[in-house]
């Protein structure tokens, strides 16, 4: 099977499908990504190529295949520095602001709220490790609804294929050690991270508030009422000037007006609308 060019009509159909189903905008320059993500699915359903797959789905409107296409196009949680922009924004905008605001405490608390297999969490740890000046400390709470995922992330072990995904080689050799057939996150990072199983829909257990929250690609799976509940819980655990990062297809707009959208680097983050000035200390 070869990567035949996707006809314009089918590409437009896919772009519309993704916009409708996941609010993701598919750029015209992303055909390579569509090929890479959908070719395995095309094979699985017996379509000759990605164009044929899309034609079939467009004509039949088969719900299961539509869902598989959306999942294949949007699921990418095993990448390091996934989507890159939030981490770049952390580096360029958020951490400099927090460095100024927390100069007395010299300590940052970060929440990786849907840590999955841990790549986001350790990517955050690497970013903080490289950015924070000497004398500063940080801690990361990593949570996930899946106990299996929490246990998996906690091991800090990744296969060869997993470390190939978006992790710069310089960081691989600096923050990981080879252990048998896989790679293990260095203790220098692991000692800053605590893992815990947590359902975002349930009222959160009492904990000190966070300076940065990553809650990415979670809200897309919830209905509006559940989105509201989750955002309410998250807001309660944010310091008044904390930063919330959501997935590219997600927003608080129209869900919870206690947040405002703030430009951060080349992307957006969300901060609390405060009736009162930021608390002291």
């Amino acid at each position: 099977m070869t990567a035949a060019v996707i006809p314009a009509a089918e590409f437009a159909y896919l772009a519309e499908l993704l916009r409708r189903e996941s609010s993701i905008v598919l750029g015209a320059d992303k055909e390579y990504l569509v090929q890479a993500r959908l070719l395995p699915l095309a094979r699985k359903v017996g379509a000759g190529n990605v164009g044929e797959l899309l034609t079939q789905v467009r004509l039949r409107s088969d719900r299961a295949t539509i869902q598989s296409i959306v999942d294949a196009m949007t699921t990418n949680e095993t990448s390091w520095f996934r989507d890159n922009e939030p981490f770049a924004a952390l580096h360029s905008t958020v951490l400099p602001a927090l460095l100024a605001a927390r100069s007395a405490q010299r300590h940052l608390r970060v929440w990786s709220a849907a840590c999955s297999s841990g790549q986001e969490t350790y990517s955050l740890a690497i970013t903080l490790q490289e950015f924070l000046p000497t004398g500063w400390t940080y801690e990361i709470l990593a949570t996930d609804i899946s106990g299996d995922m929490v246990a998996r992330a906690q091991t800090g072990q990744y296969s060869q294929i997993e470390v190939n995904r978006g992790l710069p080689a310089r960081m691989l050799v600096h923050y990981f050690t080879r252990s048998g057939a896989h790679w293990e996150v260095a203790p220098a990072l692991r000692r800053h991270v605590q893992f815990q199983r947590l359902n975002l829909v349930a009222p959160p257990p009492p904990t000190a508030p966070f300076d940065v929250v990553f809650l990415r690609n979670v809200l897309i799976y919830f209905d509006i009422a559940t989105k509201k509940t989750v955002l309410r819980h998250v807001a309660r655990l944010m310091r008044p000037d904390a930063w919330l990062f959501l997935g590219a297809a997600e927003s608080t707009i129209g869900v919870d007006d206690s947040f405002r959208r703030t430009p951060a680097g080349r992307t957006f983050a969300y901060q609390l609308n405060l009736a009162k000035p930021p608390e002291k200390g």
């Binding site: 993704l18 993701i24 905008v25 598919l26 750029g27 320059d29 992303k30 390579y32 990504l33 196009m73 949007t74 990418n76 989507d83 890159n84 922009e85 590219a248």
Partner: peptide, 8 residues
């Protein structure tokens, strides 16, 4: 060398 896969 290729656009970031990010926002698709």
């Amino acid at each position: 060398l290729v656009p970031n896969g990010a926002s698709l």
